[in-house]
Write a protein that binds this DNA or RNA. Structure first.
Length: 611
RNA sequence: GGGGGUAUAGCUCAGAUGGAUAGAGCAACGGCCUUCUAAGCCGUAGGUCUCAGGUUCGAAUCCUGAUACCCUCACCA
C-alpha cells in the first residue's frame, strides 16, 4: 500500500474547472497535487467499487488500454473482486459503472469482455487540462505527497585508474534517478563513494615519488592514468625493491605519515580531475560536495567492528572477524561469512560500506538509500543491508535498495573490451561517439557552419551514448554496438533530438503570432487528442520512475511522445491553420516541446534548437 | 555443489501491479518531399514468448521441473 490515503466515502467536491475529487481535503485532480489521470481514475473506480460492494481498499487495477476501442484506460480489478465475492464479474462491472459518481473526467465507461471496464476520457476536460498547463496554472510535475530524504550512492569510480566503460551505466542511471527524484520533490543527497584508499595506492605513490617532486611533471605523468597504473603495476611485479617500497608506503599512509599523505592527496586530486572532466563531458550533476570517498570513513572502521562486537554479531574465524547471518549460505550449505576485519587487522569493502550506511542513516537521516551499483555486487549489498539492520545502524523504517544494473557487452557477447582485451576508457568512447556524430551531421546538414555542426555533434554524440544505455532495462546486460546506437533511427537520442528540433522550428516560424500562455487548446482531430493525452501522462511515468528507478520507462514514454508528435505533425498543419485552430495547435506544439525538454532533462540529456 | 540472474521476430531490444489480437527499431520489400526540417511518415512480411507440466475465467508475466548461458559464494573493490 503506497503513499496516498485511500478514498473516504462522500468526500467529493466539484471544483470549477477540471479538478474534482477531494480525498481527505487534498485536491487530487486539481492544482496542488501532481496531476495524474491514472490516480484519479483509480480513485473514482475504487470509490464506485466501494459503493457497489461495500468493500473498501479495493484495487481498481487501472491500466492503459491496449487498443483504442477499449478506451483510453481500462479498469481490470472487477474480475478479481467478483471472484472474491463469488459473484458474476460482468454484473458486478455493470453495478460499478452505474455507481460511478458523475464527474467530468470520464466521458464513457463501458463493460466489456469478462468484466473489463473501458474508460473513455472527456475531450473537453483534456483540452482544458492542456490549456491550464500551457497557461502555467498547473505544473507538469508537482510535489509528491510525502517528500522523503533520499540518499543516492552512484558513480563511485576507483581513483587508482581512469574511468572506463564499466562506470558509464552507474553514473548516468544514477544521475537520471537523482534528477527524477528531485523533480517530484524529494530531498536528494548524492553520494559519490569513490575508491581512494587501499593497497594499490602505495604502489602508485611510490611510482609517482620516484618520478620526482615537480608538480607540473606529476600532472603530465598522470595525464594518462591508465598507462601510469600499468607502469606502476609492472614495476611492482618486476622490481624487487619497488614492491617493498610500495608496501612500506601503504603502512606509512595508514599510519598517517604526513609526506605520504600529501603525495597521496596529490595523486587523488589529479585523478579526481579526470573524473570531473568526464562528468562535465557527460553532463552529470555530481560535484565535489557530493564526494564521500572511502577514506572519509577511515576513522569509523574500528568503531564499526566494536559496535558489531557489542551487538554480539561478531565471530572470529580463521583469524578474521566475521559476521555470520542465518540467511546467507556458502558452499555446500555452510554458513557464509561477511568479513569485516582481516586477520592482519585491516578492514574491507564491507566494513567501509557499513560505516557509510551508518553515516547515511544517522548523520544524513536518510529515509531511503539507493545504491546504484553493478548487479554482480548483489550479495555484498544484501549482506551489508542485513548486518546494518540487525546492528541498528539505520532506522528500521529506512528503505535500503540496491539499484542493480547489468554489464555492457561487446558484440561477441562478452564484457566490452578493446580488440587487444583492455578495458575501454570512457573518454575514448565518448570522443569516438562525438566524432561519429560529426560525420553524420556533416553529411545530413552540410549547410550549417562548422561551429554549429561541432556543437550539434557534441550534444548528439554524448546523448546517443547515454540514451542507448538509459533506454534499456537496467537489470539486464546489453550489447554495445555503434551501428545500432548511432544509426540515429528508432528509439535513439538523435530521433528524439530531431523531433525536438522540428518542434522548435515551428515555434520559431510562428513568430509572435500566437501566445501559448493565453491560447485555448481544442481537440479537432484524433492526432491532437492522442498528443494531449500523452502529454498529460508525463507525470504518471515520472512517478513510476521515482519509485521503481527504471529510467527506460521514461525513455519509452518520450519515444512514444515523439512518435505521436510526428504523426500529429504529418496530419495537422500548424502554421497553415487559421486563427483559433492555429493558436490551439501552436500551443500544443509548445506543450510538446516543454514536455520533451523536461523529460530529456530528467534523463540528463541536452536538447538542440536546430539540427 | 549452494545462491542469484537471463532465455521474446534473422539482429538489437521493450513488454510495472497476470488481461482482450505479444510491441518497437534495424535488416528485407513497397509507397510518401513544388506544402511547418525526409535524422521523418505510412504500409507489407516476419513469433510454438527455450522446453515440459501446473495455478487461473485469462499466463511472455505466477509456481514446479528440465536445458543453455551469465554472475556470485573467506580475508579485492
Amino acid at each position: 500500500m503506497s503513499g496516498r490515503e485511500l478514498y473516504q466515502h462522500g468526500d467529493y467536491c466539484p471544483t470549477r474547472n477540471i479538478g474534482w475529487c477531494t480525498i481527505h481535503g487534498i485536491l487530487i485532480f486539481g492544482t496542488h497535487i501532481m496531476f495524474n489521470i491514472k490516480h484519479s481514475l483509480e480513485l473514482l473506480v475504487s470509490a464506485a467499487i466501494a459503493e457497489a460492494t461495500g468493500l473498501s481498499n479495493c484495487n481498481a487495477n487501472v491500466i492503459y488500454s491496449s487498443r483504442p476501442e477499449f478506451g483510453d484506460y481500462q479498469a481490470n480489478g472487477i474480475m478479481a473482486i467478483a471472484k472474491q465475492l463469488k459473484s458474476n464479474p460482468r454484473e458486478l462491472a455493470v453495478r460499478v459503472v452505474s455507481a460511478l459518481q458523475s464527474n467530468d473526467l470520464i466521458a464513457d465507461a463501458q463493460v466489456a469482455g469478462p468484466g473489463f471496464i473501458n474508460l473513455f476520457l472527456n475531450d473537453a476536460t483534456l483540452a482544458t487540462a492542456a490549456t491550464r498547463f500551457a497557461h502555467g496554472e498547473q505544473n507538469l510535475l508537482g510535489a509528491v505527497d510525502h517528500p522523503q530524504r533520499i540518499v543516492v550512492d552512484y558513480s563511485g569510480p576507483n581513483l587508482a585508474k581512469e574511468m572506463h566503460v564499466g562506470h558509464l551505466r552507474g553514473t548516468i542511471i544514477g544521475d537520471s534517478i537523482v534528477r527524477v527524484l528531485e523533480a517530484v520533490g524529494h530531498d536528494v543527497i548524492r553520494q559519490n563513494h569513490v575508491g581512494d584508499w587501499g593497497t594499490q595506492f602505495g604502489m602508485l605513490i611510490a611510482h609517482m615519488e620516484s618520478l620526482g617532486e615537480n608538480s607540473t611533471k606529476v600532472h603530465t605523468q598522470l595525464a594518462d592514468l591508465e598507462t601510469f597504473y600499468r607502469e606502476a603495476k609492472s614495476r611492482f611485479d618486476l622490481e624487487p625493491g619497488f614492491a617493498d617500497l610500495a608496501r612500506s608506503y601503504v603502512v606509512k599512509l595508514q599510519g598517517g605519515d604526513r609526506d605520504c599523505l600529501s603525495a597521496w592527496q596529490k595523486f587523488i586530486d589529479e585523478s579526481l580531475g579526470h573524473c570531473e572532466d568526464i562528468y562535465e563531458l557527460l553532463g552529470v550533476t555530481l560535484s565535489k560536495d557530493d564526494l564521500r570517498p572511502e577514506s572519509f570513513y577511515n576513522n569509523e572502521l574500528a568503531d564499526i567492528v566494536n559496535a558489531l562486537r557489542e551487538a554480539n554479531m561478531l565471530t572470529a574465524s580463521e583469524g578474521a572477524q566475521c559476521v555470520f547471518l542465518e540467511e546467507f549460505k556458502g558452499k555446500e550449505g555452510t554458513p557464509l561469512p561477511a568479513i569485516v576485519q582481516k586477520s592482519d587487522g585491516g578492514y574491507l569493502y564491507a566494513t567501509t560500506d557499513l560505516a557509510a550506511l551508518r553515516y547515511r542513516g544517522k548523520n544524513l537521516a536518510a529515509e531511503r538509500v539507493l545504491y546504484v551499483v553493478d548487479a554482480r555486487q548483489s550479495l555484498h549489498f544484501q549482506q551489508v543491508f542485513a548486518i546494518a539492520r540487525k546492528a541498528g545502524f539505520v532506522p528500521g523504517a529506512c528503505s535500503l535498495e540496491h539499484i542493480a544494473y547489468g554489464t555492457m557487452m561487446g558484440e561477441d557477447g562478452k564484457p566490452f573490451k578493446t580488440r587487444s582485451g583492455d578495458t575501454v576508457k570512457l573518454k575514448e568512447l565518448l570522443d569516438e561517439s562525438v566524432r561519429r556524430a560529426h560525420d553524420i551531421v556533416s553529411a545530413k546538414s552540410p549547410e550549417l557552419s562548422p561551429e554549429h555542426r561541432e556543437q550539434i555533434s557534441n550534444v548528439v554524440g554524448i546523448a546517443a551514448v547515454k540514451y542507448a544505455d538509459l533506454s534499456k532495462n537496467r537489470t539486464s546486460d546489453y550489447v554495445f554496438d555503434w551501428s545500432t546506437m548511432l544509426s540515429f533511427e528508432g528509439n535513439t537520442a538523435p530521433y528524439m533530438l530531431y523531433a525536438y528540433a522540428r518542434i522548435k522550428s515551428i515555434l520559431r516560424r510562428q513568430g509572435e503570432g500566437v501566445h501559448p500562455e493565453r491560447s485555448e487548446v481544442r481537440i479537432t482531430a484524433v492526432e491532437e487528442r492522442n498528443l494531449i493525452i500523452k502529454i498529460l501522462q508525463f507525470p504518471e511515468v515520472v512517478d513510476v520512475v521515482a519509485s521503481e528507478c527504471y529510467p527506460n520507462y521514461l525513455c519509452a514514454y518520450l519515444y512514444e511522445l515523439a512518435g505521436i508528435f510526428m504523426r500529429f505533425y504529418e496530419a495537422c498543419p500548424v502554421l497553415k491553420a487559421e486563427s483559433d485552430l492555429r493558436a490551439s495547435r501552436v500551443t500544443l506544439v509548445s506543450l510538446t516541446a516543454a514536455t520533451l525538454k523536461q523529460g530529456l532533462g530528467l534523463l540528463g540529456l541536452e536538447t538542440l534548437e536546430q539540427m
